[in-house]
């Protein structure tokens, strides 16, 4: 390093806003008692949009990921319209900072947490997962996130916490789609506590090493890779621990078509279409469907969660 660069103050290198928010974040996280030790890999949303020092994850799928464009221009996010291109067109109105997540229900450390405090102690990883939509299309996505279970443990759920429910933001000023009741808003989803604590369940903040675009569920979403995509709830504002199976939006809307579990299962068809095969996004007009895998190919990791459960009845 040359002499001149040594003289530059850190405040001149880091954009001021990022610098200040980092200081604020550390202060508030410390105040909330959320940081046992401040590591150098403390997770945060980078001001320039690019994550650095992401930890590689050894179990990523080896198939080539879909293009950034496919992943960010073909979305189901009904709060911004029911067409596949609607979210990319409309989601710019979503304000993702500041962002607060409320934790309620059967846990010791309930309350409101700033996104910075949620992320701070965790190490972000680059994980390439399969993603399977209930509409029988699929893609391969390099997400950025950390295991949900690590976060939930910090809230110290009690013995009554059998399930975890999640809620998406519900703001008609930011989300034109919620003005029509195509689903019951706020969008809500849920997992059993065992599913939520499974190391595959990823609390996600980025894609392709970049901050999540709004249409993909910024700033904080779930990715549950062995379940149909609608279980992977976007733009989370509330996490609720409960002792009974929670309501989920698609199940409330059409209970005969969308169950609570909604595990990817080629042997259990949707009542109106087959789930035996899928179309990979980005493939050509003449490429054929590919077979859908049990639990979307994650049977080794999650099969034990469902031992003894009738997957036809509990679809």
């Amino acid at each position: 390093m040359s002499k001149t660069t040594n003289q530059i103050k850190p405040s001149e290198i880091t954009p001021e806003s990022a610098f200040l928010s980092r200081r604020r974040l550390l202060k508030s996280a410390a105040a909330a008692g959320l940081i046992p030790a401040i590591g150098c890999d403390a997770a945060q949303i980078p001001a320039d949009g690019d994550f650095s020092n992401l930890k590689a994850w050894p179990s990523s799928v080896t198939e080539a990921p879909n293009s950034y464009e496919d992943i960010t221009q073909y979305n189901n996010y009904y709060e911004f319209g029911t067409g596949k291109e609607d979210p990319a067109r409309n989601a710019h109105t979503l304000v993702t900072s500041p962002w607060t997540v409320e934790v309620t229900g059967e846990a010791e450390k309930t309350g409101k947490y700033a996104l910075e405090d949620i992320l701070q102690p965790h190490t972000l990883e680059d994980r390439i997962y399969r993603f399977r939509c209930v509409e029988a299309w699929s893609m391969i996505v390099p997400w950025v996130g950390f295991p949900l279970g690590d976060l939930l443990a910090r809230f110290q759920p009690n013995s009554q916490a059998k399930y975890v429910q999640f809620f998406t933001l519900n703001d008609p000023n930011q989300m034109p789609g919620v003005r029509r009741n195509v689903l019951q808003w706020p969008y809500r989803e849920g997992l059993t506590i065992a599913e939520a604590m499974n190391p595959l369940t990823l609390l996600t903040v980025g894609v392709y090493g970049k901050v999540l675009p709004n249409q993909n569920g910024a700033p904080l979403r779930l990715i549950v890779p062995w379940k149909y995509g609608f279980k992977s709830i976007k733009s989370i504002v509330r996490i609720h621990f409960t002792d009974r199976m929670p309501q989920t939006s698609w199940n409330m809307s059409q209970p005969s078509e969308y169950g609570f579990y909604s595990n990817v299962n080629p042997n259990v068809d949707h009542p109106r279409w087959s789930q035996a095969s899928e179309r990979r996004l980005g493939s050509s007009l003449f490429s054929s469907r590919i077979p859908t895998l049990m639990f979307n190919g994650y049977a080794d990791e999650v099969g034990d969660l469902y031992r003894g459960l009738n997957l036809v009845e509990n679809f």
């Binding site: 464009e69 496919d70 221009q73 073909y74 596949k84 299309w137 179309r279 007009l285």
Partner: peptide, 18 residues
């Protein structure tokens, strides 16, 4: 759109779009 001329395309899911 199918042969992708003039910047046109059927998008990421061409069969379904067609």
């Amino acid at each position: 759109r199918a042969v992708e001329v003039m910047g046109m395309s059927l998008g990421p899911n061409p069969v379904t779009e067609l």
